[in-house]
C-alpha cells in the first residue's frame, strides 16, 4: 500500500516539476523535486524504501530525458546508495541545514557526474551518436544546486507529511490485523 502512495506522489511531483517549475527556469535550470525527495529517504538510517523511490523516479526521468535510457536511474541509485551508506556509517550527529546543504551538494555532484560518465560510456560503445560535454553540466551546476537548495525545506515538509501518513496507515493496518 505504501509503495502505491509513493508511486502516486512521484507522479504528482513530476507533474508539478514540469508544469510549475518548467515555466520558471533560472538560467535554463529547473529544480529536480524527485531528486530532493529521494535524498530525504536515503538519509533515513533504517529502511530501504529509498531504493524504490530512486529506481522509479530515475525511470520516469529517463523516459522524459532525450539522452540514452538509464542515465537518471543509475545516477539516482548510486547517489542515494552513497548517501545512505554515509548516513548509516559516518553520520552520528543529527542533521541540520548546514550539513544537509553539504550533502545535497555532494549528492547532486555525484548524480550529474554519473549522468555525464554514462553518456560518455555509451558514446564510446557506439550506442549513441553524440554525448553532452562536461562543460554543459559544470556551467550551470551552481545555479541548479542553489535552485534545488531553495526548495529543500518545502520538500522536507512534503516528506515529513508523507512519512506521517504512511506510518499511521501502517499502524492502522496492524491494528486491523490484530
Amino acid at each position: 500500500m505504501k509503495y502505491i502512495i509513493y508511486l502516486f506522489l512521484i507522479v504528482l511531483l513530476l507533474g508539478i516539476n514540469l508544469g510549475l517549475f518548467g515555466q520558471m527556469p533560472i538560467a535554463k535550470q529547473v529544480p529536480n523535486l524527485l531528486f530532493l525527495f529521494t535524498i530525504f529517504f536515503a538519509l533515513e538510517k533504517k529502511g530501504y524504501d529509498f531504493y524504490f523511490i530512486a529506481f522509479i523516479s530515475g525511470l520516469l526521468l529517463d523516459f522524459f530525458y532525450t539522452g540514452f535510457f538509464g542515465s537518471f536511474t543509475l545516477a539516482f541509485l548510486i547517489s542515494s546508495s552513497c548517501l545512505h551508506l554515509l548516513s548509516d556509517t559516518f553520520i552520528v550527529f543529527e542533521l541540520n541545514w548546514k550539513s544537509l546543504s553539504g550533502l545535497l551538494f555532494g549528492a547532486l555532484a555525484v548524480a550529474y557526474l554519473v549522468v555525464w560518465l554514462y553518456g560518455l560510456m555509451v558514446y564510446k560503445f557506439n550506442w549513441t551518436h553524440d554525448f553532452e560535454s562536461f562543460s554543459l553540466f559544470s556551467r550551470y551546476f551552481l545555479i541548479n544546486f542553489l535552485y534545488n537548495w531553495a526548495l529543500l525545506y518545502p520538500m522536507y515538509i512534503v516528506y515529513t507529511l508523507l512519512k506521517q501518513g504512511v506510518d499511521s496507515l501502517t499502524i492502522r493496518r496492524r491494528g486491523i490485523v490484530r
Partner: peptide, 11 residues
Amino acid sequence: LSHNPFGLTDS
C-alpha cells in the same frame, strides 16, 4: 510534452 526540463539538451 516536455521541454527536456533538466536543461541538459536543447530538445
